[in-house]
Simulated scan of single mutants.
Amino acid sequence: MSDFEIFDDRFKDLLLPDAKLEKLVTNCTWAEGPVYLKSGLLVWSDVPGNRMWAWSEEKGEASIFREPSNYSNGNTLDQQGRMVTCEHGGRRVTRTEHDGTIQVIVDHYQGKKFNSPNDVVVKSDGTIWFTDPPYGILPGTKEGYESDPDLDGCYVFRHDPISGETTLLIDDMLKPNGLAFSPDEQRLYVADTGGSHDPDAERVIRVYDVVDGQSVTNGRTFCHIDPGMADGFRLDKNGYLFTSSADSIQVYAASGDLLGKIRVPEVISNCTFGGPQGNRLYITATTSLYAINLNTSAASQ
């Protein structure tokens, strides 16, 4: 079977002549949250395993990056190249300093604990936007510590590390999960994984207009995901959205048109761009880390 399914000629422009999906590592429980560090390491979370892994392209090998990881999930970089992490176990968002120390960025809203911050993105102004579904506190969870929620729902938040202010931005989703900005930061995309516990829930990515860089409005459906659900995703420099699903990385134009699929033999959680040229798409999928070189790169490096 081909690694690709093409629905639009624009997808062909993303493929290099020798593009091929590679399996790099396969010993995870549930691989998530890939982030490419400026050091050249690709770091990702194994959420139920309570550890983080690192892949070195130079050495061609994986190693343990952090264990325990406080049930880390989503990761990203800030403008200083520091890793920002969502921790289910601590119900918080943290930052790893260049010396390796971990600083708490935010762990509550109006005196109440978060559910279990899941995925995170840092805007160009340094503000931190993150989702807060309950997967790390649900009964029987293996991704954190079972607990009753303090909050009355699952929301998307914005945290300003300068003022210390945390703002509730989005309250119209069942279980907000992956999120990312358009290249011009005028749109915020957010996956809703409410279908994980509600078979009737829509399996969608929603999109919101960003107002004055600080709030959002006009929430609407961007695309429906089939099969499976969108979990994490990234945008490239064309404004194309590369999202996880049950069978592939699905690639959507800004219009919401499905351009094509990069088939992956495991259920996918997330992806990120990296590598020396920035054109290597790393894919976390159930037990494994995959990669493929493409004719594109991240919306911002």
Score class of each variant (00 low, 15 high):
R91L: 07
N177D: 08
A62L: 02
S124Q: 14
V211Y: 02
V211H: 10
S300T: 10
D3Y: 04
S116R: 01
F4E: 00
Q214C: 12
D152V: 04
V35E: 02
L259A: 10
A285D: 06
S255D: 08
V43C: 05
G274V: 11
G178M: 01
D148Y: 09
L188N: 07
A62C: 09
N270A: 11
F130S: 13
Q110M: 06
R10H: 10
V190L: 08
R220I: 14
I249C: 05
L138W: 05
F4Y: 04
M1C: 06
E57T: 07
A19Y: 05
N73K: 08
R82W: 07
R234A: 03
N50C: 10
V93F: 05
H108C: 11
L174H: 03
S45P: 01
S69F: 02
V104E: 08
I162A: 14
L289D: 05
I268R: 01
Y36P: 00
S2P: 01
I225C: 12
L281G: 09
V35R: 00
K59S: 12
P276T: 08
D226T: 15
G232H: 01
D132K: 08
G100V: 11
Y135I: 08
L42C: 12
T101K: 15
V190Q: 02
P48D: 04
T243N: 05
Q301N: 12
V210R: 00
G49I: 03
